[in-house]
Design a protein around this nucleic acid. Structure first.
Length: 425
RNA sequence: GCGAUCGUAGCUCAGCUGGUUAGAGCGCCGGUUUGUGGUACCGGAGGUCGCGGGUUCGAACCCCGUCGAUCGCCCCA
């Protein structure tokens, strides 16, 4: 009886090759930009007590009510694999006394977990980059945070995405707007789609971005937040938009943009591919590439003092789909052993090359006469052939003459002249 | 949770209206050829046709179930 092979968990990925290179490129770019903007690196646990998420995100949200990976540990505590970064970072801010560092800019990245049906650009274990500014009430914080997001996308070479920006106002503005929306949609409930009728009770703001054409004409006429904005909230939003203009960050007003989670206040934003762009095509049905906003109420829901904060997160997989093919980088040098008697010399050569900062790999398996062809196919900058039979002249082959000279000097000096690694006679 | 499409070698796929020992390309292994070399040729290994049941003289192909994948809805990164 042959033992069976366990399969991978649904919605997990084994990322390899060009995709893994694109993934790494996203993370590397984020790390570099994050340092430019002076965000400090934090490492967070991948699991927390369940209440961290249920209280911060909101019991009624889909994330909490049906998408969390929750389990009991051996001590009987309910724990949950993080579905997002923000709640955990807020918890850490409170439990570690990070208030002393306010305003605190932090950045992190890693895996997150959501029990959902996988599809293009959406997984059960997915990965995000994340940036937060904690303990900062000023609109300048929003501007800085968005400038950084914009910078990351730009350095990734991603085009055809635009910052969609909205304000949800302060808690009062948001509540009055919500009531007005509910009243408005109740009037026309009979003509709404079934989904939107359900949303009316549960999550009325979401009716605003319904894709159903039947809903859209009502959405167009629906009350907008602007009518309900307090002077203070309006002024805050203006300072954010003025700041973005000054910082050279393009944006567009999206009056129906609301974010799914309960904790958002004031600024809410998403970077979304432009209609018909290559980016939109690459992402399939998943549109948002980076999203976030201000969450002034979150700390209180975790029992902390009122603490203003802004943050965003972006899916690494989705970004990686937009950065294009990034093939495996060819080696600087491939060392081909065409005579196994000279294996020791080959290892010596590899060591010398790598210590010089040249990437190098070894081809020493299979038919000796086919090894050189194998190396040539891998398209390295140079091939070093060791022990070829019947060949005359240089064992280094490359179109890069400078590199040929450098390798020649290096290897002659440190390998071929060394009696312990010389070929046997 | 719902819907659509799909499931044949390591990979990409072919397999006509059901009909002998299930094929190709790439990759892998070996050999020959070439000989400042990425070529060409020959040979080889490798398949419970996702799994289970049914229809039939006969099923990779038709039917039912099941599992899995992909894409979409809901929601979201």
């Amino acid at each position: 009886m042959k033992p069976s092979t366990p399969k991978a968990i649904r919605g997990t990925q084994d990322i390899f090759g060009a995709e893994a290179e694109a993934f790494a490129f996203v993370v590397d770019t984020f790390e570099r930009v994050r340092k430019l903007y002076r965000f400090r690196r934090v490492e967070m646990p991948v699991f927390e007590r369940t209440e961290v998420f249920s209280r911060a995100i909101g019991e009624t949200t889909d994330v909490v009510s049906k998408e969390m990976y929750s389990f009991e540990d051996r001590g009987g505590d309910s724990l949950t694999l993080r579905p997002e970064f923000t709640a955990g970072i807020a918890r850490a801010y409170l439990t570690n006394g990070w208030q002393q560092h306010a305003p605190l800019r932090v950045a992190t990245h890693g895996p997150l977990f959501r029990y959902e049906r996988p599809q293009k650009g959406r997984y059960r274990q997915f990965h995000q980059i994340d940036a937060e500014i904690l303990g900062a009430a000023e609109p300048m914080a929003d501007v800085e945070l968005l400038a950084m997001a914009d910078h990351v996308l730009r350095d990734l070479g991603i085009t055809g995405v635009t910052l969609h920006l909205n304000t949800l106002g302060d808690a009062d503005s948001r509540e009055r707007w919500r009531s007005a929306l509910v009243a408005y949609f109740r009037e026309v409930a009979g003509d709404l789609s079934a989904e939107s009728r359900a949303r009316l009770e549960k999550n009325p703001l979401r009716i605003l971005d319904s894709k159903d054409p039947a809903d859209r004409r009502f959405v167009a006429e629906a009350p907008t937040i602007d009518t309900f904005l307090s002077d203070e909230a309006l002024r805050f939003f203006e300072q954010v938009t003025d700041g973005l203009d000054a910082a050279g960050v393009g944006w567009t007003r999206a009056r129906s943009l609301v974010r799914g989670l309960d904790y958002y206040r004031h600024t809410a934003f998403e970077f979304v591919p432009d209609e018909g762009s290559a980016a939109a095509a690459a992402l399939g049905a998943q549109s948002t590439v980076l999203g976030g906003g201000r969450y002034d109420g979150l700390m209180e829901s975790l029992g902390g003092p009122p603490t203003p904060a802004v943050g965003w997160a972006a899916g690494i997989e989705r970004l990686a789909m937009l950065v294009g093919e990034r093939g495996d980088v060819p080696a600087d040098v491939i060392v081909v052993v065409e005579d196994d008697e000279r294996m020791a010399q080959s290892f010596a050569a590899l060591r010398v090359l790598r210590e010089e900062g040249l990437s190098a790999e070894l081809i020493a398996s299979g038919s000796a006469r086919k090894r050189f062809d194998k190396a040539a196919k891998a398209n390295p900058r140079a091939i070093l052939s060791i022990g070829a039979q019947g060949m005359m002249g240089a064992p280094i082959r490359s179109n890069d003459e400078v590199l040929v000279d450098r390798l020649g000097d290096l290897l002659y000096e440190k390998v071929f002249s060394n009696p312990t690694t010389s070929p046997r006679t």
